[in-house]
Design a protein around this nucleic acid. Structure first.
Lengths: 329, 329
DNA sequence: TTGTAGGCGTTATCAT
DNA sequence: ATGATAACGCCTACAA
């Protein structure tokens, strides 16, 4: 394996000089810089990131912490996009990444998790799928021993940023579109998890819409479960004109219920997953680009590494309709 | 951060002794062993795996190399199960893992990829979704600079194992079951990728079945694409009695086509993904436990690390039917 | 501007 | 059986 030592020898300079070139230090003359760069090229040198991580507690290794819901189909798709988006950007930025799942830390204390992360020389974490109940993770964020970026969880401190679309506005928009298309005014809203961060925002969006348009609004928590959405629809679907759901998966549950009841109601979802294509109907939904969201998170983490303070980063979304033809490959 | 040095001090022994205890070396007296173990407990010491990886070229860091197909829904589910299964087992075995995707190495040479992996101190690779066309990966396997475990790719050498179900037998079994249930004899088989490893095995299974049962068998390559399966079915579905597909996704495509044509044919799939639930029909399929498969692969990689030679590891499968009620949560 | 040397936390070799 | 000590590959004061 070719090391920094070989490069130094080849370029006729000291190891530290090579290191300085590699890490873009100032105070390196153009001549030595190019000498070193040539040596790097000729020897096909790739710095060993493990050694770098060990040696400097500076920027470095980041953990992708994913709250994987192994039972819900739609979630897989979202998580895969998160992960691949984050990894691509990390490679671009030269950051070292390991992927971890919430379930690995079940029954562990914040201290234990912290120690584990430190034992991996982790200095930054990106968190996907945080809910209010994940106390251990919250504690870790609060301790600020790591730079953190939370996706969809409104937490900011000196070392913590969060990135998210504007869930309130998005929910407002997609519901408005559906209402406008159908001109009814009794709305059934199937919200997400009672303790999920985005749930409150989206409910707020619905309330604003109901107020602005003088609509009647009934809200139930579907917990992002297809089954619960189905049951809620079976019970309250008939009395409503439109069913707005806080996730595509729940929208599917609602639609299946409506089919069963043999009545029609416009249904709209949230997330814009491909799964929507398999139900064989069109419906409005909010399309989030999860891959891009994750890339933004990685970029923000890099900013934190570079000394910036935590902040909120707003991601874009679009309204869309997904149907079978869009999916099939 | 508490290091091995602190443990040594606390236990009143030398650093090297602590290391020996940690790595289960022989030639350590019971007394010192317990002394050290107590110190580890009391100080909540977790060894730094980055430092370990740097210091020893022995066992160590493994790369999960996943061939992610970002467009096909069903694939996400399978990949997530692979990844989570592998990561869980790795944690159990104390192995360090990073996750990588094929697309990250697009247009890179084998040398470049090798250097990258070495720069990460990778010593073992588990490969998911290899096809005959991935020449660079094949070269890397051939070079044997890393211990490799390939899932579903029949490659074995001194440093390479592969784990897989018996695709020939599985395809035979699930097709036989479907044939027996329906008593028809003209079979349309929609195979997978022309260059996929499992495709040939499965076709062989179909041929054996056709021979054993005196069935007529038409074979087309659907490339694991829902759309192609749909088109093949539109063209040849009517003339056939039963449609056997090499993946669930293609089975869905076939069923959609049949619906469109307004005719009925028994359809069977392969993989046992939850996606099957969303089409609202029952069909036979082969259920592979991808998570377990990945865990087996990780275990086998660990065996390779421990000096064993590459070999074939056969994984179990079951026949099953999946339908809507099984999925909804 | 460049080089020297100590250190990051382990493992591994070799005395003792 | 135990303990110094030199790597591993890189970073970073500090010295020159």
């Amino acid at each position: 394996m070719v090391s920094i030592k070989d490069v130094a020898k080849h370029a006729g300079v000291a190891i530290s000089t090579v290191s300085k070139v590699l890490n873009n230090y100032p105070n390196v003359s153009e001549t030595t810089r190019t000498k070193v760069e040539n040596a790097v090229k000729e020897l096909n040198f790739v710095p060993n990131s493990v050694a770098a991580a060990l040696s400097s507690k500076r920027a470095g290794r980041v953990a992708l912490l994913v709250n994987l819901n192994v039972d819900a189909q739609a979630i897989d798709e979202i998580d895969m996009r998160y992960i691949s988006g984050a990894l691509s950007k990390a490679m671009e930025l030269g950051l070292d990444v390991i992927t971890l799942f919430f379930f690995m830390f079940k029954d562990k204390t914040a201290d234990e998790v912290t120690r584990y992360l430190q034992s991996q020389s982790i200095t930054g974490i990106i968190i996907f799928g945080l809910s209010k109940e994940d106390l251990v993770i919250h504690e870790i964020i609060r301790d600020q021993k790591f730079k953190c970026v939370v996706i969809d969880g409104p937490i900011v401190n000196e070392n913590t940023s969060y990135v998210s679309i504007n869930h309130m506005q998005a929910q407002y928009d997609v519901a408005l579109k559906t209402v406008d298309e159908n001109e009814f005014d009794k709305i059934l809203y199937i919200a997400g998890k009672r303790n999920g961060y985005v749930t409150d925002d989206r409910i707020e969006g619905m309330k604003r819409l109901a107020h602005d348009r003088g609509l009647s609004l009934k809200i139930f928590y579907g917990e992002f479960s297809e089954l619960q959405a189905r049951n809620i629809t079976l019970e309250h679907g008939e009395k409503s004109h439109i069913i707005i759901c806080a996730s595509d998966l729940m929208a599917i549950g609602a639609m299946k219920a409506l089919e069963e009841m043999d009545i029609f109601r416009p249904v709209c979802g949230f997330d814009g997953t491909m799964l929507m294509g398999y139900v064989g109907q069109k419906m409005n939904t909010v399309r989030q680009d999860f891959s891009h969201l994750a890339a933004m998170a990685m970029e923000e983490l890099n900013n934190l590494f570079n000394g910036e303070s935590g902040k909120y980063v707003e991601a874009p979304y679009t309204l869309t309709q997904i149907n079978y033809e869009d999916i099939i490959v």
